[in-house]
Simulated scan of single mutants.
Amino acid sequence: MDSLVQILDALESPARGGSPGSVPALARALGVCSTPGCRAVLGEPPEPPPAPAALPPEQWRLLRELLRPEPAAPERGAVLAPDGSTVALGPLLAGMEAGLRLGGGSEGPWAPLPTLRPPLDPLLAVTVAEVLGTSFLLARGDGDGAALGPGGCWDDVDDPQNYTLTGPPTLVPDAVANGAMDGMVLGARLAREPAPLAELLRGYYGTGNGSERGRPPSSYRRRDFGALAGPGKLEEELVAVLELLRVLPPTRGLLEGVGPGEVAAVARRAAGEFTRRYV
Rank of each mutant, 00 (worst) to 15 (best):
D83W: 03
P49S: 09
S135Q: 07
P82V: 06
L120A: 05
L113C: 11
L63M: 03
G84F: 02
P52K: 05
G108W: 00
D158P: 00
V176M: 02
L148F: 01
A72L: 12
G152Q: 02
L123V: 11
R140Q: 04
A177W: 01
A125P: 04
P49W: 01
L120N: 00
L93S: 08
W110P: 12
V126H: 10
G151A: 15
A98L: 09
R68H: 10
P150D: 01
P50E: 06
N162P: 04
L171N: 08
E75H: 14
A51Y: 01
T164M: 10
Q59P: 10
G103A: 13
A177K: 00
A94C: 14
G95N: 11
Q161I: 12
V172N: 02
A53K: 06
Y163K: 01
T170S: 11
G151C: 13
L67N: 05
L137F: 01
P50L: 05
P56F: 02
T134P: 07
G179D: 04
P46R: 12
P71F: 03
P48C: 04
A129Q: 10
A54V: 07
A72W: 01
V128S: 15
A147Y: 03
L67Y: 02
V87N: 08
P169E: 05
T115A: 14
R64G: 11
D83Y: 03
A73Q: 11
A81F: 02
P82Y: 04
L63W: 01
E97S: 12
P91C: 11
L113R: 07
G141N: 01
R64Q: 12
G95M: 09
S106V: 14
A98E: 07
P109F: 08
Y163L: 06
P49F: 00
E75M: 13
G151M: 10
A147M: 10
P160G: 08
L102Y: 08
G149W: 02
A125W: 02
G179F: 01
G90A: 15
W60G: 15
G77A: 10
R64M: 02
A53R: 07
Y163P: 03
L93H: 07
P112R: 10
R140N: 00
G149H: 05
A129D: 12
N178K: 00
E107W: 06
D142V: 12
M96W: 04
V131G: 15
D83K: 04
M96I: 12
D144G: 15
A53W: 03
G133Y: 03
V126F: 06
L138E: 00
R101Y: 06
L171V: 10
G179L: 05
P109M: 09
P48R: 02
A81G: 04
